[in-house]
Design a protein around this nucleic acid. Structure first.
Lengths: 216, 216, 216, 216
DNA sequence: AATGAATGAGATTTCATTCAT
DNA sequence: GATGAATGAAATCTCATTCAT
């Protein structure tokens, strides 16, 4: 699937969004990303970041004037570029196939999105944790994501519902189950630290059945 | 349902597990719980806890000698008592009804567990967040939860599988989808800050269909 | 003169304005005052303050959350209490003697104000230096001092002018010369580090002659 | 008055004393001067200087190896050249007119010196502030200025005193009042940010009367 | 038991200065 | 010469923890 090629890892995207950055600054960004994901933002010191990046502590502050800006530099391009692109790419794929079945749609979503999640697990972890802790980030995220879903995912769902391919629940609920189920894989891997290649196909089957229309 | 009555809110459980505590210490515990859930453990200062509890900062330390002990005092009883009881109660219910259908089992699980999640969302949030950041807590949790599920949930799943009531996936995967789906509700509510009374029945239907055996 | 007794040293006033302060906090305030006066605010580190006060560095921040607040704690009571009281006390003295001569007025002003300047040289040095460097402090000072002079000093000057006891210059100019001349003594002492007991009488004579009406 | 033409602005003098300086270094010097005067030396960063000068931060250090040298480059020529020349020029004027009256002398001093103060207010502000904070600068200034006044101003004062044109106070006191009164104008302008063309003549009259011999 | 001032280790941040390009 | 990224020492500030009252 050509689309898959388009999905860049969020880390690369963060870097792309921070073009023309001197190499040491990239190291700082990479170190921050790794440490924030591993230990959490609040538990990571700039000293650790500097050590991991192999730079002096002052260097951490050269481009990003506060630790919070460092977090923003990681999350912002993700929310404003990577995430939107991800959703729009999906929409394009789907719109070009008006007579998609539920299976085709879910497979189309899950395969690419799971690849994305696996590549960008680190940033997603940071995002999820910080969203649950910072009100400002939460509303920023909601105001970014809501219209994206509204405009790109929901019309597709509605069309499928109209054709009797999808259960008749509110779109937000269907999205909750789709996204949530994919994210459980992130959590599973955290706990079991094991990789399961079969995960994708199982998730597809689970969603496909779970979201089938109610048969009375 | 009688069982529901048995499910105490985690906070009450925490308090129960900390019996004979002077009132000020209870206030400290309650304040910590609220603040940890809202802002995260690392972002909460003992000063904030003291203020919220209406006590002096020194008082925070009378019973719990470190901030970490405070976290432990909240999470430990939850993991060692509340959580096990929750699962065992479920097992007892189910074991007494050998010919349960998938629907009955899932309903039996979800109704009570969702009530539990809704009551104890605060502690769960703390637990999930801290588990993702502390390796020790993670292995502690895994070594607690794994046998519990192994001993209580998995036999039930196996029996249902044997009777063709349940899809033939590894138990851990089925548990992942059941627990994960229920937890998505926590996250949904965090983002949308809206309560949906219909959530439970939708989740039941979603799981029931999603976990049905593959029909070929 | 009874009034002289009323003039408290600004340091005592700063302390008075910071009543019920634990002794260590007073030491912090006193150390800050001394060091700011000696080395300037920007050249004084909180480490120096802590060392001079004989406390830990954290103690410096217990009551005053920033170094700037420490400066404010010293200057604010001076501007809002000591300085106004100083001017009002003068006004009361003078108002009770409607037929004062220029000599009497100037003597009445200079004697007490010079005592004040000598006692509070340290704070005045800080105030003058910081005023010349911070725009906010400057306008704060102007908006405090201007009405005070307007209401208390200028009417007295006008009355003397009307009686031909005082040169017919704008009040602000007369104030400039009176205050300025007194302050030159501060600067002289800084440079020569010598005390001249005769200063007061010389200043009185200089002002008395300098501010006499123009004889044509 | 021809002399007035001779008085160059201190900035020009500073520049003159730093002849053969590449243009970028001049910009650095000018930026430093402006910023030190506005914000104080300690509150000005080399980054600000570089930005204001329109050069890179490294360039600030090409000629002046430390920030202190930058201050020295501004103040030194002022103290060693501008200031001495100012006083000597005055002396030459006066010596050539042995029968000067007090009015003539004061006018001769004040007119030119006030022009000087107005032109060089920025440097004077820096000088005064730093003198009050640095002991080395203070003694340097005293050892420079004292003999200059001793040799050039004091003989003139003595001659006038001998002729009964001037009050019989110590020369240092008379100098204090003359210089101090002129400097009050600097401070007045800082506070009121208004220019008063009449200032010079009022100051002359004030000094002339204030320094008149005591009449008994 | 409770208080809250004090502590000091350590975190964040600043900035004069250096140095490779 | 000029640049600006990098440095690291030192400054400001935070906060879990202790302790005298």
């Amino acid at each position: 699937m050509a689309e898959e090629m388009n999905i860049q890892s969020a880390f690369q995207s963060v870097m792309a969004a921070n073009q023309d950055i001197p190499p040491k600054q990239k190291q700082v960004l990479a170190a921050s990303l790794a440490l924030f994901a591993q230990q959490g933002f609040a538990n990571t010191t700039t000293k650790q970041i500097a050590a991991r990046a192999g730079v002096a502590e002052g260097t951490v502050y050269r481009r990003y004037k506060t630790k919070d800006e460092l977090l923003a530099a990681i999350l912002a391009p993700f929310m404003t570029e990577v995430f939107p692109r991800l959703i729009k790419e999906f929409a394009q794929d789907v719109v070009s196939q008006p007579y998609m079945t539920r299976h085709e749609m879910i497979e189309s979503i899950v395969v690419d999105r799971m690849a994305f999640i696996q590549k960008n697990g680190a940033i997603l972890r940071i995002l999820i944790r910080e969203i649950s802790v910072r009100k400002d980030l939460r509303s920023q995220f909601v105001s970014h994501a809501a219209p994206l879903l509204q405009d790109n995912l929901f019309p597709v769902l509605d069309r499928l519902k109209a054709r009797g391919e999808l259960v008749d629940w509110p779109d937000s609920r269907i999205a909750q189950f789709m996204i949530g189920t994919m994210l459980t894989e992130l959590f599973r891997r955290l706990l079991l630290s094991e990789d399961d290649a079969a995960a994708v196909s199982v998730i597809i089957e689970f969603l496909e059945k779970g979201l089938a229309p109610t048969t009375k």
